[in-house]
Computed example of a mutant assay.
Amino acid sequence: MSEARPAPETVRVAAIQMNSLGEVDPNLARAGDLLADAARRGARLAVLPENFALMGAHATDKLHAAEPDGPGNDPGNNPGNNPGNNNTPIQDFLSQTAAEHGLWIAAGTIPIASPEADRVYPALCVYDDTGQRVARYDKIHLFDVGLPDSAEAYRESATFMAGSNPPMVIDSPFGRIGLSICYDLRFPELYRRLAADGAEIVVAPSAFTYTTGTAHWHILVRARAVENLVTMIAPNQAGHHASGRRTYGHSVICDPWGQVQSEARSEANEVVIADIDRTRAAKLREGFPCLTHRRLA
């Protein structure tokens, strides 16, 4: 039996935690089941984690799964109107699933072809409840790091091309939504820009490593919520992947006061649900106007 939808002043949202595999098709099937569950439970906005469609055994696997930027941009590209198109299975899936369930989906990330054959854009695409794509944000901060006291190292710039897009905030029936991805969480100036542009909700689809997640995941997500008085929806990858990488899980939804409303507790696929008060950010900003007290640009 479906759970009752919340009152009009609240909106039910979902952070979709995944343990993504090394092939696209089973990941899309798994994401489809999780999104259907979120919709059945009354969610109107669902956020998928970074690399939800592919966590390959090799960094270059994403190049073979790269798609041209396409379906969801206009009704003519909707898979329902173009069933013969098989060049963009991930985007087709997202557009069709959003329309099928009447669900807004923020899907981070999709490998979108770039001008360079050996790199792709890591794109966070947002689809409305009719299946129309309403936004695309390409990750601007790439995870090129070596972890302290460890041989663990990553160089996303080897296969990803950083986005040149400005910070992005979009309108929705649930308020203004700011877009960010994973490593972006370590750059508070981005979130300040999103807040200045009117963001009330910020999504942060992620694939935090187990090492960095254990140390910093909750601190960063909660800090971005507190600093900017926004709701943070932060789904994460979880568990072991084909490459041997382990991700942290603990997908969270935080309110604008930095309180964790809901959190995943396993390293499995999981739908994290919370009802968020659409008026809370505005009330907090009025009574606790720290955003207007800034003295440094």
Rank of each mutant, 00 (worst) to 15 (best):
residue 244 G to D: 06
residue 176 R to E: 09
residue 128 D to N: 07
residue 29 A to G: 08
residue 263 E to T: 11
residue 122 P to L: 08
residue 121 Y to V: 04
residue 21 L to V: 12
residue 75 P to E: 11
residue 185 L to S: 14
residue 10 T to I: 01
residue 127 Y to W: 12
residue 99 A to M: 08
residue 186 R to T: 08
residue 278 R to I: 07
residue 22 G to S: 12
residue 31 A to N: 04
residue 33 D to P: 00
residue 27 N to V: 07
residue 108 G to R: 03
residue 193 R to P: 00
residue 263 E to G: 03
residue 27 N to D: 06
residue 62 K to I: 10
residue 199 A to N: 00
residue 172 S to N: 09
residue 98 A to L: 06
residue 47 V to N: 02
residue 41 R to W: 11
residue 14 A to F: 03
residue 116 E to P: 00
residue 147 L to M: 14
residue 53 A to W: 03
residue 191 Y to I: 10
residue 255 D to V: 03
residue 119 R to A: 11
residue 79 P to A: 10
residue 69 D to T: 02
residue 204 A to D: 06
residue 77 N to C: 04
residue 228 N to A: 05
residue 6 P to K: 05
residue 210 Y to R: 14
residue 75 P to C: 05
residue 78 N to H: 14
residue 234 A to P: 00
residue 258 G to I: 08
residue 200 E to M: 07
residue 108 G to Q: 05
residue 82 N to T: 12
residue 37 D to W: 03
residue 220 L to Q: 13
residue 124 L to K: 05
residue 73 N to E: 15
residue 81 N to Y: 15
residue 120 V to T: 09
residue 273 I to L: 15
residue 274 A to L: 08
residue 189 E to K: 14
residue 90 I to P: 00
residue 158 A to C: 08
residue 268 A to N: 14
residue 178 G to V: 11
residue 265 R to K: 15
residue 12 R to G: 01
residue 27 N to W: 01
residue 223 A to G: 08
residue 251 S to R: 04
residue 68 P to L: 04
residue 99 A to H: 08
residue 280 R to F: 08
residue 174 F to P: 00
residue 77 N to A: 13
residue 290 C to K: 13
residue 182 C to F: 03
residue 69 D to Q: 07
residue 61 D to T: 09
residue 184 D to C: 02
residue 283 K to A: 14
residue 48 L to C: 07
residue 115 P to Y: 09
residue 133 R to W: 01
residue 110 I to H: 04
residue 65 A to C: 06
residue 16 I to F: 00
residue 266 S to D: 09
residue 146 G to V: 11
residue 261 Q to D: 12
residue 49 P to H: 06
residue 38 A to I: 09
residue 194 L to H: 03
residue 142 L to D: 09
residue 215 A to L: 08
residue 266 S to C: 03
residue 117 A to M: 11
residue 77 N to D: 10
residue 292 T to I: 10
residue 32 G to P: 01
residue 72 G to F: 02
residue 295 R to M: 09
residue 162 A to V: 12
residue 118 D to Q: 12
residue 245 R to S: 10
residue 33 D to V: 02
residue 192 R to K: 07
residue 26 P to I: 05
residue 130 T to H: 04
residue 165 N to S: 13
residue 126 V to T: 08
residue 144 D to N: 13
residue 203 V to I: 13
residue 84 G to Y: 13
residue 220 L to S: 04
residue 34 L to I: 05
residue 188 P to V: 07
residue 86 N to Y: 09
residue 99 A to E: 07
residue 193 R to F: 00
residue 229 L to Y: 01
residue 64 H to Q: 15
residue 256 P to K: 10
residue 35 L to F: 06
residue 175 G to I: 14
residue 194 L to G: 02
residue 114 S to M: 05
residue 192 R to L: 02
residue 152 E to L: 12
residue 52 F to N: 06
residue 115 P to W: 15
residue 238 A to N: 07
residue 262 S to R: 13
residue 169 V to G: 01
residue 31 A to V: 12
residue 97 T to C: 03
residue 29 A to P: 00
residue 5 R to D: 13
residue 131 G to K: 12
residue 121 Y to A: 10
residue 7 A to K: 11
residue 96 Q to D: 15
residue 274 A to F: 04
residue 21 L to W: 04
residue 160 F to H: 11
residue 36 A to Y: 01
residue 80 G to F: 08
residue 174 F to D: 07
residue 139 K to H: 09
residue 20 S to G: 04
residue 259 Q to W: 04
residue 73 N to K: 13
residue 125 C to F: 01
residue 268 A to S: 13
residue 219 I to W: 03
